[in-house]
Design a binder for these strands. Structure first.
Length: 515
RNA sequence: GGCCCGUUGGAGAAACGGUUAACUCACCGCCCUCUCAAGGCGGCAUUCACGGGUUCGAACCCCGUACGGGCUACCA
């Protein structure tokens, strides 16, 4: 199978385009085929300089490496439409010679007038039949106009009959019927560049894709495309119209819009630090309905061991579900070994969070140790959904941020007096038990708590609140705050182990001095 | 307006004419727990947009309606 992705250089990669390329690429690779990328840069007005290269770059960060493209070339190039003009010219000439096309000199004003007239009498709008004035120009008239310098476009001379039906067997949607195309559509613009329809005909013939995977917004143009291929006598490609990713906006579904929705740009997810693997996994669940089931059965398999199929694609575009993306990414980050997540987080931080990057780089093993807390095993921690979540959760492990935080606030339970807090901290310091294994450490902590007047078991405290100052949870909280400046931390035992005795003593003393 | 496509719980969806409509995410309870993050257990559609029809039997087939989406450019 040979597939292609044909983006216009009008901005950064769209989430929907990424999804479509992922599907096209996988389909090609699965079948041992070729995936290529062609730049559709025929609309100079909308072009954004440099965005073509950016598109390829973003595709590649997601692991989608085209076999042929406008960057690396290939045997069926050029891969940039602006460089293929001579090819279009040859085909145009052929069409003209075979009476399948003609020049049209109608101005925008004339076209507007035709449309108004059609609206008035409720005829179908467009350039066809009796409205196609230039279609009936003689060769001499046309030649004279061209020589006189009138601007013109080239139109396809549609052989269609309105009452005829045509159909296409879309590999995703099945057989779809349409009325035959009768419009004499523009195939070459005044600027000499082809329109999409014509470029599709020429490029997707000469560049030899076997399957045209594109958004369903193209479905309505299929009658035009079929007619083009048939008229020139070229073999029709196989069409696969992909459902479009939607978004719920004020109760209504609409296409993800690059202007309105940050999540429509792939770069948004990259900036936020969503793991690439997780994002791809989400896209796969959107692409094939049986992917999630497969994933459940093969939790550790490589995502690309799954074979995408046209049969398992849905017909209607699903809503983009950020919650689900997050959940999948969380799972994905939880599964990574500490060294892996550490190096990926560092790579992300280097690009998007210099402060974080600097802190990590200073002592990479320390950062890995932090990330290793409760990692691995059957039930790994799941506290990050993206790389940008990491630092806010663990920055207290770095003295600089701990200092700032503890000076800012010490959220001790107001029930406890300054003396009681100091008692707890000092009792802990006398017997921190850091050399003990986790379970014993906690037993030790309970003992110390009890000796300080706290219940070792929460239930005991609840049954007899008057007999104790508080329970083990209260006791641990005081130490936790003194050492981390916050009420929640990952597993406290490991936090303490990683900080080390000296740091703990320093932090506790520092906290006491602030009371 | 016309032409296409679609419609199963809050979201993604399974089911391919035959018992109580899978599963994942979200949500809500309870349990576990030194905090957090998790984890465990349970709940969440008497019903498949609506109305007719076909059938012994329909979410699945047919017709109509409603709603949503796409197209209707010298944009892709």
């Amino acid at each position: 199978m040979v597939t292609r992705f044909a983006p216009s250089p009008t901005g950064f990669l769209h989430t929907g385009s990424l999804s479509a390329s992922l599907i096209s690429w996988r389909l090609a690779k699965q079948s041992g085929g070729v995936f290529f990328v062609r730049l559709e840069d025929t609309d100079q007005k909308r072009e954004i300089a440099g965005s073509g290269d950016k598109l390829i770059e973003e595709l590649e960060t997601f692991g989608i490496a085209p076999d042929e493209s406008f960057v690396k070339g290939g045997a069926y190039g050029p891969y940039r439409q602006s460089e293929r003009k001579w090819i279009y010219d040859v085909v145009i000439k052929h069409l003209l010679e075979h009476d399948l096309a003609y020049p049209c000199f109608c101005t925008h004003e004339e076209l507007d007038e035709i449309r108004k007239e059609q609206e008035k009498i409720k005829a179908n709008p467009g350039y066809y039949g009796e409205y196609a004035k230039c279609r009936y120009l003689s060769l001499a008239e046309a030649t004279a106009k061209v020589k006189a310098g009138f601007p013109f476009v080239i139109r396809f001379k549609s052989p269609g009959i309105e009452t005829n039906r045509v159909y296409v067997d879309d590999v995703i949607r099945g057989r779809i019927e349409f009325p035959e195309n009768v419009q004499d559509i523009v195939i070459m613009k005044t600027d000499g560049l082809p329109t999409y329809h014509f470029a599709h005909l020429v490029d997707d013939h000469f560049m030899r894709p076997t399957h045209i995977t594109r958004g369903e917004e193209w479905m309505a143009s299929v009658p035009i495309h079929l007619q083009l291929f048939d008229s020139i006598g070229w073999e029709r490609p196989i069409y696969a119209h992909l459902p479009v990713i939607m978004k719920l906006d004020e109760g209504k579904r609409r296409k993800l819009s690059k202007r309105k929705d940050p999540e429509a740009s792939v770069s948004y997810f990259l900036e936020q630090g969503y793991p690439i693997e997780g994002f791809l996994e989400y896209l796969m669940t959107m692409a094939n309905t049986n992917f999630e089931e497969w994933r459940l059965a093969n939790p550790d398999a490589d995502i690309f061991n799954f074979n995408l199929s046209f049969a398992k694609m849905t017909l209607d575009g699903g809503l983009f579900d950020l919650e689900k993306v997050k959940s999948i990414c969380k799972e994905c980050l939880a599964k990574m070994p500490a060294e892996t997540i550490a190096s990926k987080a560092l790579a992300w931080a280097k690009a998007y969070d210099q402060t974080f990057a600097a802190a990590i780089k200073n002592d990479i093993p320390y950062f890995q140790a932090i990330l290793a807390i409760e990692r691995g095993g059957e039930k790994p921690r799941k506290d990050y959904e993206k790389y940008s979540d990491i630092f806010p959760i663990i920055n207290f492990m770095y003295d600089k941020w701990f200092e700032a935080a503890i000076r800012e606030s010490r959220p001790f339970n107001e029930r406890f007096t300054k003396t009681q807090i100091i008692d707890v901290l000092e009792a802990f310091l006398r017997q921190p038990g850091l050399n003990l294994p986790e379970a014993e450490w906690f037993e030790n902590l309970k003992m110390v708590a009890e000796a300080t007047g706290f219940a070792a078991r929460t239930k005991d405290y609840k049954n007899n609140p008057d007999r104790y100052l508080g329970h083990i949870g209260d006791f641990a909280e005081i130490i936790r705050i003194a050492v981390s400046a916050r009420k929640n931390t990952p597993n406290f035992y490991y936090v303490l182990k990683i900080l080390g005795y000296d740091t703990i003593v320093n932090r506790i003393n520092h906290t006491i001095s602030l009371l």
